[in-house]
Amino acid sequence: MNYRGIIAIYRFEMARMWRTLGQSIASPVISTCLYFVVFGSALGSRIDKVEGIEYGTFIVPGLVMLTVLTQCISNASFGIYFPKFTGTIYEVLSAPISAFEIVLGYVGAAASKAIIIGSIILATASFFVELKIAHPFYMMAFLVLTTFTFSMFGFLIGIWADGFEKLQIVPLLVITPLTFLGGAFYSIKMLPPFWYKVSLVNPMVYLISGFRWSFYETADVPVGISLIGITLVLTITLSIIYWIFKTGYKLKP
């Protein structure tokens, strides 16, 4: 195992976050504050409690998930796409480092950044609402599983993309809409029966529901199913990454 190689990639990726501290941390924090101002204070005070929880408090897990998912995908996809774009990927591909170690370096860094930002958002939220976390261990488990899974998904997008526009397509057209419709700002139980059933096809429902359960012990779907769902997505992304490195798809001609 080339531990130093993994650490070199990890540090290189984390260094970019510290170099661009403003856009890495300030922008998600500012946008979260805006959500709290609009949905928490301005509109939230006129909305009934959801599942017995104040609306401003109810949306915290969904907001964290929304930001974390976006961050995972954009960090991991950019992390692998940029060396492909500049050509510096040659060094990683010709080094004595295995595919698994390369993925661990890039995905580990993207997941770490997302976890740091998620924690900062939680800290920011605590200034606006009264937060309680019923199951801190499960909360961290969901956060870590989600960040690794979606960082791997972002890594896949970075390998697949052959232009900067494609890096944005999936987060903008797929992830953000699915997260909004996955119960980030409402409980899907509030929907009419038909749309409730449609929502169950959305994988984000399981992520957000499980994560919210770890805070307030209230869930749209059983927690066990949420865990199975996220493990399934993790397995699928891992299998695709394994196939990519085996065949050299878009990495080695």
Partner: peptide, 9 residues
């Protein structure tokens, strides 16, 4: 970075 990538301290 190149040193690290090749597994060296």
């Amino acid at each position: 970075f190149s040193q690290g990538l090749f597994g060296l301290k």
